[in-house]
Nucleic acid binder design. Structure first.
Length: 184
DNA sequence: TAGGTGATCTTG
DNA sequence: AAGATCACCTAT
């Protein structure tokens, strides 16, 4: 949970086919393998979730609804299976390339607010499954830190199937930030 | 508000 | 081997 908060204000970079794009992470969700039914890895260690059981610092990417790739950062020690989903970014580099990838004409909030659109704009797909977050394709750099009283915590999106665990307030974003998929 | 889309997991 | 299930997005 702490890492999900610390990642807000961190810059996510990708370099794909020589194209460098980057954005400030503005919305995250935390998932915990051991006791969180909303986590894909909870009670399941399969080919798809295997990388979540690895030591943190790698990417967990999966395909959702047959269309959208979702990008997660594996965060804990081996066998804990914890991860943070990146749900939105504020684009800061390579905006023209992001617009092209998203097939959009003008910059607006919809470019990178939502986990599926973040991946599309940044060029992330299943080829990045298990990739190191220390480059060369994907990496992070520091930009801003937020005090905890600047952050909003809400329940996570789209996890109603998880029963009580759907109520955990493990979705975070900076208060007032416009680059958020669904403000409260 | 509903439908598209395909990998993954279960046998509903 | 087939069917259900999804951490979503876009357009009506």
């Amino acid at each position: 949970m702490a890492i999900a908060r610390e990642l807000l204000g961190t810059v996510l970079h990708t370099c794909i086919n020589g194209v460098h794009t980057a954005g400030i992470i503005t919305e995250t969700e935390a998932y915990r393998g051991l006791d969180d039914k909303a986590c894909h890895a909870h009670g399941r260690r399969t080919a798809r979730t295997e990388v979540m059981y690895h030591t943190g610092g790698v990417a967990y990417v999966f395909l959702c609804y047959g269309i959208h790739h979702l990008f997660n950062i594996v965060t804990n020690q081996a066998d804990q299976a914890d991860a943070v989903l990146v749900r939105a970014i504020e684009p800061i580099k390579g905006v023209a390339h992001m617009l092209e990838r998203r097939n959009m004409a003008r910059l607006n909030k919809r470019l990178t607010t939502g986990p599926g659109t973040v991946c599309q704009a940044m060029g992330i797909d299943k080829g990045h499954y298990g990739a190191s977050l220390q480059g060369p394709a994907v990496w992070l750099s520091h930009h801003t830190s937020y005090a905890s009283n600047q952050l909003v915590a809400t329940t996570r999106i789209g996890v109603d199937y998880a029963g009580n665990d759907a109520l955990r307030p493990w979705r975070f974003y900076p208060a007032g930030c416009p680059w958020v998929s669904k403000p409260v």
